[in-house]
Structure formats: C-alpha cells, structure tokens
C-alpha cells in the first residue's frame, strides 16, 4: 500500500474511533448544531493562529473554548433559544473565518480547511490523532457513567452527586478536540457529519448506550475505509466520500430496520 494511503487510513480510523462514542453524546443531547458551531469556529481559529504564528491546533482549541463559554453564558440567560444562539455563533464564526482567511489568502489552503485533505496528512498528524484517540477514549471511559447520567437527566444526576457542570465542560472540550483533530481528515464543513451520521446509523441496532457507541465507531471505520476506496477508484475528494459512505450506511440500515418491522407485522398478520 502506498505510504500516503496508509497514513490517510490511520488518520481516518483514529478520527472514526473518537467520533463514534462522542457522536453518540452529540446525538443523545441534540448537540449536532453545537458540533457545527465548533467546526465553523475552527476555521476562524486556524486563521487567527496563523496570524499570530501559533500552531493551528492551538488556535482551534482556544476558539472552541471561547465559543463554549460564550454559548453556555448566553444559553443560561435565556433571551434567545439555544437553537438561535447556535445559529448566530455557527454562521458568525464561519463568516469571520472566511473573511480572516481571505485577508491572508496566500498563506491558507481554504479548500483544504473546508473539505479536508486526508491524503496529505503527515506522520506527525497521524501521531497527533493517535494521541488524541488515547486521550479522548481514556477520558470517555473514566467519565462515561457520569456523562451518561448527566445526559439522561442533569438535575437527577446532580442530586445524586455527579459533577454535572464539570462533565458538561469535559464533553465540550472533547468535541472541540475531535473537531480540531478531524479537520485535516474531513474538513470543517463535514466534521460534524462524521460524529452524527455513524451514531445515528448505529441507533436502530443498539440495545444499550455502550453498544451504540461501539457500533458507531465500527460504522465510522467502515465509512472511512469505504470512503478512501471510493476516493481512489473514482477520484473523488476523500472527506466527502467518507461522509457519503456513512450516509449510505445510515440510509441502508434505516431502510433495513423499517423493512424488517414491516415484514414482522406482515408475518404476524398472516400467521
């Protein structure tokens, strides 16, 4: 296998492993739009980081932090619905990011940021993502029970002694981290898709939260490998191809479940 393809596969697999369980929380907590906000903010983060000569990853994480704090402050005020606040932030950040990138046009590959460029990842990127996998999965394993309890009902969890505020911040931090790491693989426009779609595709088959998380990771892996294959065969951009395969898994799975339900009803009726 070509070296660049191996790197792409490893980077994509790493992202899929992290995105599976995190994507479940995004789905369970209805945070898809939050993920988009993080991703769009990442563009601005890269531009600002380059402007001051910092590593892009740092820029993304700092901006994600600022966005998270701003969001939670505004959300608690309740002047506006969370939906509206996210809409303002997501598109505001995207517009600011695009403007900032345009100002520094010569130094940034805009299309690479928007759509990702997984075939161009370096071994350093792969190592970074590998570190991210270990870090994110460790934190998730430790915080899993509390995060799940908080997701089910924050008040009840807090009354039972779960540090819900802290865990909310941990989750936002993890999402921001995965967005930052996955940017190179799928780009800011489709980062959330890699979290949401495998988790959504896993839902009909899952009996427990844990099985949904594992299955989401597996489906993510399939999407990454399949997407790379499609990309090689048909010369399509790799990031979007991965999301297309994930979409295929979602649609196929949903139709399959619906079909099985129909079949079961029909059998029950006829027998």
């Amino acid at each position: 296998m070509d070296d660049f393809l191996l790197r792409a596969l490893l980077a994509g697999a790493g992202v899929a492993l992290m995105a599976g369980p995190l994507g479940c929380f995004v789905v369970w907590r209805r945070m898809a739009y939050f993920g988009d906000t993080m991703a769009h903010g990442a563009l601005l983060g890269v531009a600002l980081a380059l402007a001051v000569g910092a590593p892009p990853l740092v820029g993304v994480l700092v901006l994600a932090l600022v966005l998270s704090v701003g969001l939670s402050v505004l959300a608690r005020r309740r002047w506006l619905s969370l939906d509206t606040v996210l809409g303002v932030f997501a598109h505001g950040a995207l517009a600011l990011g695009l403007t900032a990138v345009a100002v520094m046009a010569t130094r940034i590959d805009l299309l690479g940021l928007l759509l990702g460029d997984v075939l161009a990842v370096s071994w350093r990127d792969v190592a970074l993502i590998g570190g991210g996998v270990v870090g994110v999965l460790t934190v998730l394993a430790v915080a899993w029970r509390g995060l799940l309890a908080t997701t089910l009902d924050p008040d009840l969890a807090q009354a039972e002694g779960v540090p819900t505020r802290l865990l909310d911040m941990v989750l936002m931090g993890l999402i921001a981290g995965v967005v930052a790491l996955a940017m190179k693989v799928v780009g800011v426009l489709l980062v959330t898709a890699l979290m949401v779609i495998p988790a959504a595709a896993a839902r009909p088959w899952a009996r427990s939260p844990e099985s949904m998380a594992v299955l989401a990771s597996v489906l993510g892996l399939v999407a990454v490998a399949g997407g790379l294959g499609v990309s090689m065969a048909a010369d399509t951009p790799a990031g979007p191809s991965m999301v297309v395969v994930a979409l295929g898994l979602f649609v196929g799975g949903s139709l399959g479940v619906a079909g099985m339900d129909q079949l079961r009803q029909w059998i029950n009726k006829t027998s």
Partner: peptide, 10 residues
C-alpha cells in the same frame, strides 16, 4: 423525567 427515546436504555 422525559427520556429521549434516542438513547437505548434498559
């Protein structure tokens, strides 16, 4: 407690 049916839970 309104649980989201999106979370598979026993």
């Amino acid at each position: 407690l309104t649980l989201d049916p999106v979370i598979p839970l026993s």
